[in-house]
Design a protein around this nucleic acid. Sequence first.
DNA 1: AATATTCCCGTTTTT
DNA 2: CGGGAATATT
Length: 719
Amino acid sequence: MDHLLADLSEPQREAVTHTDGPLLILAGPGSGKTRVVTRRAAYLASTVARPYEILAITFTNKAAGEMRERIGSLGLAEGMTVCTFHAFCAKLLRVYHERFDISRNFTIYDTDDRRKVIKDAIERCHLSSENWTPATVERHISLAKNELLDAAGFEGSVSDWRLREVARIYQEYERQMTEMAALDFDDLLMLVAKLLDRDAELCDELECRYRYVLIDEYQDTNLAQYRIARLISQRRKNLCATGDPDQSIYGWRGANIENILNFERDYPKARVVRLEQNYRSTKRILAVADNLIVGNQRRKEKALWTANEEGVPVHVAEFDQADDEAETIARSIVQHVENGDRYSEVAIFYRVNSLSRVLEETLFKAGIPYQVARGVEFYNRKEIKDVLAYLRVLVNPADEVALRRMINTPPRGIGATSIERLEELCRASGRRVFDALTNGSDLSSLGRSAGKVSEFAALLRQLGEAVKMPAPDALRFVLSHSGLRAMYAREGDDEDAPIHNLDELVNAATEFQNEFPDSTIVDWLEFTALVSDVDSVDKETDRVTLMTLHAAKGLEFPVVFIIGVEDGLIPFRREEHVSDMEEERRLLFVGMTRAKRELTLSLAHWRMRQGATMRTLRSPFLDEIPQDGVEWAEVEDEAPVSSRPARSGGGRLPPDIDQWSSGTLVRHPVYGIGQILTLFRGARRTHVDVQFQRGQRMQWVLEFAELERVDYDEVGDTG
DNA sequence: AATATTCCCGTTTTT
DNA sequence: CGGGAATATT
């Protein structure tokens, strides 16, 4: 067992060998957390517990996979439960489905499915959607569920009339979801948390099964997750939480940083171990990042240090156009490779996915191989969702979102009207559409399309055969009998043609089947619902990695570029929407601390956003980093030719126009102080959209508006 | 009913 | 700019 401790630092060893009672591991970036966590699991498994008594919960599948692999290489993973919160809850829900009063074969709805149901619910409520978009409703419902409020609970908790309407929609949504035996991501957590809350017996049972619980990335837990963690370690308190408040970046989706900040209050006898030595970055990178993060209030102080070498200065590069930024990065990458680095050592991070486009174009032109880690690209493709809809209906006939999708895919001459009439018919007779179809009910009232519908019903019955097949076989069966394969075969077979993705899906299913020989279609569907493509960034092939700052958490690269370090982007800001500055700061901190050797922050004065090129301002965070150890490179700012207004056109731009952007505070002789929402430089005129403090909002041609810029400190706190 | 076209909207981050 | 929905066309 000594080999588990041999090469550990003192605090690391302490974290590994603490067995019983609550333990909080505050792990700075690059402090060897993964190593500690895996060693600890292995240590427990070889001293006080059996592997199957250990439960390790992570936030992403990637983290789970990595942990499983690393514990495996220590020879002890067999039987250990290592998975995400969502996967853990899904498993519990299946095993104890009776206690949850839900079908064992419930379907997990992704964001798309959920949105469809919410739109439906809104329609059924006959509410004008003037006041909120489906997205807004969705968000409210999601946040409510994170706070353990079901539809009834939510209704009881709101007074605002707008939220009351949301509550009605929530109720309708919940009703429909129940009818379809469908759960969304948030349900998985909420239902488990709620059940554990009232089922002490089950808690005991779980606690006996999982004597040691480990929660990774504890700073990103929401209330539901916090409760689950607490309830399954209630008696023994063998809960080990690891994380770093400075890396809490999911507040927007309900994560509560207080969970980690208050750990010692929640678990008074907790041992706290700080991992402060950084083994990843150079002194300079760490110093710059640390200098930024100390600006935060809500944190637990850590004295980050490293024995690594000084390294080269951190770069801050300022460009005129976003194209220049991308091109310079491309050139720099080429240089690196010429100097012997590999493409795979380089990563480029950005705040929003849309920024990847310019980069992709430029890298492609430069012949630089790259990969983009994007959310759920693969499983969101139309062809993939099409086939999966078939499987979903097979195992859960109540899944009407999937049924609606498959009924006319491929086109069977059953249009929207017919589908609606069919659904109406079923609703009237209180039957599920699936049952009505497969029981050979009388469909003659459907008129002209009755024939087509019966043909479809026959197909459904035929496909029923596939239910008992293993996933890959069922997939193949469905593909050939449904006509989907034929349909997509017609769409060509280029590199990224649908037909190839379908093949890839079959391969993925086969792989899954090999790994879990006893698995069913339901298991496979669950797997597809809970994976994302971020999980599949591969380090094998030699290429540059592009990803969002959020996706970068937990990774490291020798050479890191962070682009778009501009006000409004980092920190992100949107009209009417105040961002949490501390969380934005943490996000940049996370990005910076991914870098081992070299770090470059860059910004462009002009950036295309929402189809329009806009003037930008550098991120205020750049003013917070020390000049020491940082190298600034500025390029001459040549305003785009098109934006130089003709003198003869009359009017004039403010002299300091270069300093203006969205977010700039301005003063108007009549309207007073306001803030620029958008600033758009057209070929001849510059247009501004200004929101004034007193409530008015004006759109002007800047050349003629009597606006002058004012500084933040001149007007104090403007909210 | 299926396909082509236009238009309009939103637009962070992800399990 | 790009996706989805409403609208026009075959």
